[in-house]
Simulated assay, not measured.
Amino acid sequence: MLDVGEDTVTLSAAGSTFEFASEAEAVLRPLVDGRTVDLATLTDTAGLTLGGIAGLVQELARLVEVVQEVRAWAARAAASPASST
């Protein structure tokens, strides 16, 4: 789900929420809608440089990795017996 505010865009997916600058909407919208868009179209539509779009995609990938690591840690913690002191 993509929630567009005045200054930010909030992406909610797989139980996580991420907030981006409003300019990211043009890049995130096709992803949320399940569309395939080439980078040239994204740069034109979003008004961002190719480097800006690459940076956003890298940030998304990093956020996904962090969420996956936190979920794995939480699953391991839940599966471990509580230590008694």
Rank of each mutant, 00 (worst) to 15 (best):
A14Q: 12
S12A: 15
L48D: 00
L60H: 13
E19N: 09
T43C: 07
G52P: 10
A78W: 01
D7F: 05
L56N: 11
A46Q: 02
P81Q: 00
Q68N: 10
F20Y: 11
S83H: 07
P81H: 05
E23N: 06
A77C: 06
T45Y: 05
W73D: 12
A21E: 11
V64A: 15
L50W: 00
A21T: 12
L11I: 05
G15S: 05
E69Q: 09
R71K: 10
E19G: 10
L42K: 06
M1Y: 02
A26F: 06
L60W: 14
L11T: 04
P30M: 08
Q68R: 10
E23F: 05
E19M: 13
G34H: 01
D44T: 10
L31C: 02
E6M: 12
E25P: 04
V9Y: 04
G15A: 08
T43P: 00
L42S: 02
R35Y: 05
V57Y: 10
D38G: 05
G34Y: 02
A79M: 01
R62W: 14
A14I: 10
D7E: 07
A74T: 10
G15M: 11
V66C: 04
G5F: 04
F18H: 08
L56I: 15
A72V: 10
A21F: 11
A79H: 01
S16Y: 07
D44S: 15
S12T: 09
G47P: 00
E6L: 13
T45E: 15
S12W: 02
A21G: 14
I53Y: 02
E65L: 06
V57L: 12
S83L: 15
Q68E: 14
S22A: 14
D3G: 10
R76M: 08
I53H: 03
A61F: 12
R71M: 12
R71E: 15
A40I: 03
A82I: 01
E69C: 03
W73N: 12
L11V: 03
M1S: 11
S16D: 11
L56H: 12
T43L: 07
E25R: 03
A72M: 11
